[in-house]
Computed example of a mutant assay.
Amino acid sequence: MQPTHAEVARTLAAGHLPGVAHIACRPGPLPVRHVTDANGRVLLLSPRDGALAAALKPQEGNDDTAMVLDISDVPPMAGSPAIGRVWISGWATLLEGGAERAATLDYADIDASGDLLDVGDGQVIHRLDVAEVRYERNENLVDVDVDDWAEATPDPLCRIEFDLIADLIDHHEAEMSAYVRRQLGSTFQPKAEPQVVRMDRYGFMVRLDDKLARLAFPRPVSDRHDLAHLLHPVLCHRCGD
């Protein structure tokens, strides 16, 4: 098992990676703080008198502005492969009143930034209603169905991936290496010690000399505690005997 294109796109757009906005008929790109809510709508947080808010001001006769949010993966470790890039196209609308308050709470559920306390005064929130999602990896470009995007969920490990991999390297490198070698059997045994370089709810990616291999979990994990439970027999394989 491995993530779908929609799941990877939602993971990239969850809010833990930097993004830039390309706005129709405006200079740019412009850096933007963002999160994606549970329904797949993108929320943009910016200073009221900043460049982004000015660029998103609608043309006369309109109440929204066309834009593209561009987000690239930042690998967690040196030597970790990137999982790609996503472009989210749609129309950005300035939120006010009840919609602004609701969006502020939705934003805080994902990223409890102190700047949210200033929304309505020095900070504003725009909502990007998604019309098109495109995902690219290794020069392969895929159109992600907008309904699939809305239904997908970001990976629950994305914000702690670095910590998880660092913990395996620092405290469980020998156990993980032994586990990977057991999984590989006699078909291929790398010269260097196998090293985990990426991790998600479905499994982990391991570097084997100059190759990469993906090892799947028996089932998708839901959070860090669930991952620890699932990895226990891997890190202490005798417990599973």
Rank of each mutant, 00 (worst) to 15 (best):
A24M: 05
R26P: 01
P29Y: 08
G19P: 03
H22T: 04
G40N: 12
D37H: 02
G28F: 06
L30W: 08
D37L: 02
V35D: 15
L44Y: 05
L17G: 02
L52Q: 07
A14G: 01
G19D: 06
A24P: 00
G28R: 12
L30P: 01
N39Y: 00
R26M: 07
V35P: 08
R33H: 09
P27Q: 14
G28P: 03
P18V: 09
I23R: 08
L44N: 12
S46F: 02
G19H: 02
P31C: 05
S46G: 11
R26V: 01
G19W: 05
G50H: 12
H34I: 06
V42P: 01
G50D: 14
P27Y: 05
N39M: 02
L44F: 15
C25E: 15
P18T: 06
H16W: 01
V32E: 06
V42E: 14
A51G: 00
G28W: 10
H16M: 02
N39A: 10
G50P: 02
A38Q: 10
V20R: 10
G19N: 04
G19Y: 05
V32K: 06
G28I: 06
P27I: 02
N39K: 09
H22D: 14
G50M: 09
P47K: 11
G28H: 10
P27R: 11
R33M: 13
I23V: 12
A24T: 15
G15M: 11
H34W: 08
L44K: 09
N39D: 08
H34N: 12
R33A: 13
R41T: 09
P47H: 11
A38P: 00
L52E: 13
H22M: 08
L43N: 05
A14V: 08
A38T: 12
A24Q: 09
A24W: 10
R26W: 13
C25V: 12
P27G: 09
N39E: 07
P31Y: 11
A14H: 15
P18Q: 05
P31L: 13
A38M: 01
L30Q: 05
D37Q: 02
L30H: 12
T36Q: 09
A51H: 14
G50E: 11
H22N: 06
L44M: 03
L45C: 03
R48E: 15
P31R: 13
S46A: 09
V42Q: 02
V42A: 06
P31Q: 15
L52A: 13
L43P: 01
S46Y: 00
P31W: 05
D37P: 00
R33K: 09
R33V: 08
L45S: 03
G50V: 04
